[in-house]
Write a protein that binds this DNA or RNA. Sequence first.
DNA 1: ATATTCATGTAACAAGTTACATGATTAG
DNA 2: CTAATCATGTAACTTGTTACATGAATAT
Lengths: 185, 185
Amino acid sequence: MSLRFALLAALLEGDASGYELSKVFDVSSAHFWSGTPQQLYRELDRLERDGLVDVEVVPQERRPTKKVLSLNEAGRAALRAYASAPARAQAIRSDLMVKVQAADVADIDDLLATVTQQADEFRAKLRLFERVRERMLDGRDEETYLRESDRVGPFLTLERGLAFERENLAWSERVIAVLTARRAR
Amino acid sequence: MSLRFALLAALLEGDASGYELSKVFDVSSAHFWSGTPQQLYRELDRLERDGLVDVEVVPQERRPTKKVLSLNEAGRAALRAYASAPARAQAIRSDLMVKVQAADVADIDDLLATVTQQADEFRAKLRLFERVRERMLDGRDEETYLRESDRVGPFLTLERGLAFERENLAWSERVIAVLTARRAR
DNA sequence: ATATTCATGTAACAAGTTACATGATTAG
DNA sequence: CTAATCATGTAACTTGTTACATGAATAT
């Protein structure tokens, strides 16, 4: 159910096509919710059907015609109601952690390769988020930004995303150190 | 697909009934994967059908009869293969973060109540994980434990769980501070 | 008395994934 | 010349959620 509101929340940042939204929600760049393009297109159809977004078909010169979505008053009201209602408990589901949980029966070299590769992804995501943060702050310091900006939501979630990737990276490096020491025994 | 291996990994810690596993995978106590009892029972049936676990029906005196599951050689081999294969990218999906992303259209008092309530849950989970950690270490320091224990997986994932809840809590408090300052304007 | 715990399950539904398709354009 | 990008979609499938049911035992 949250995908729908994640999409509406993304549209607060401005009108966007399904394709553009699919970039925002891509696993490799998402910082508060992710979904595949197929999931988005299905949900966007429903948002249109339910009258929560306005759709404008925009023909382009040397690109396929796109549908640009914008949040309308009904959508804004639905998002407001959702954001004001209690949150559900945070479900932890990490494929990498399941593998580490099973570290003691795994092939250590294979697992080390996996963790190393994931660490690279965490590093890339961290760098990406840091660049987005710089662009958001635009020279101002954090406190000035929070005082002056009319929107704090995207900044706050980005901070959480940054901390998450930093922890992922630090933990990966710890796992690598421990497994390497184990292998040596 | 990971639920299946999360269950097998949980069985590395010893035989367990579906009911006991449903406690381990409960959102409020899980630290690497979560699932509802209904999901587990369905998957446990499949694990049995696929011959990855042995099932012993244990009648009890003043309790309903239970099925105790144990990892067999086929299950151990399947888990080993899974743990040695590459991990899929970490998908971020947080209901709370979607709400904070939409903070600027939400009712601030309602959102503050939500974040405060979530902070309480993070605190409870943090305390729970800290107790589990103490029990695991059993007086030894971390390095001694990692050197002596025959299993490091559960300790490593617990460390990640602890860091995650610590970050959740710190971020919640930050969000509360920012939203409170906003409300005052 | 009432709620919670133990222990399992069925049924219906919603959400998420994977594979595939189209067809033009631009970057390496 | 091949791969990636733009832009959307269909179909089939797997996972995850919600609501409900059973029935005894114990805790408040």
